[in-house]
């Protein structure tokens, strides 16, 4: 059975507390992304790609922080998980 959003957030909370503590308490936006490669990309690069599109869920954590000089800076962490809630990629700005 696919994980609910609530279950996902709970699973990822521990990871965020350890790796991005400044964002761990932020409420993430959960989105579904499908990795379809446009035909033009494959053609231009001369590669062949699998026809099936992979679907994953992405939890985006975001907040604005204040720098030393008062400037507002965006801080974002995106956690990509598979259908079982396994983290397959994390990235930040």
């Amino acid at each position: 059975m696919a994980l609910t959003d609530k279950e996902l957030k709970k699973m990822i909370k521990g990871y965020m507390e350890e790796n991005s503590p400044e964002l761990a308490d932020e409420e993430p936006v959960i989105s579904v992304e499908s990795y379809e490669i446009p035909e033009g990309v494959a053609r231009k690069l001369g590669v062949s790609l699998p026809k099936s599109a992979k679907t994953v869920k992405v939890l985006t954590y975001k907040k604005m922080v204040t720098a030393e000089d008062g400037a507002k800076l965006p801080i974002v962490t995106r956690v990509t998980v598979d259908e079982d809630g396994n983290i397959i990629k994390t990235t930040g700005n």
Binding site: E22, V65, A67, E68, D69, A71, P74, N93
Partner: peptide
């Protein structure tokens, strides 16, 4: 480094500290 839309400066980071 970090940057912002409304600032010309770039910033470092360690923990929750963002120095110019």
């Amino acid at each position: 480094l970090h940057g912002g839309e409304d600032t010309a400066n770039w910033y470092g980071q360690e923990g929750s500290s963002y120095p110019v």
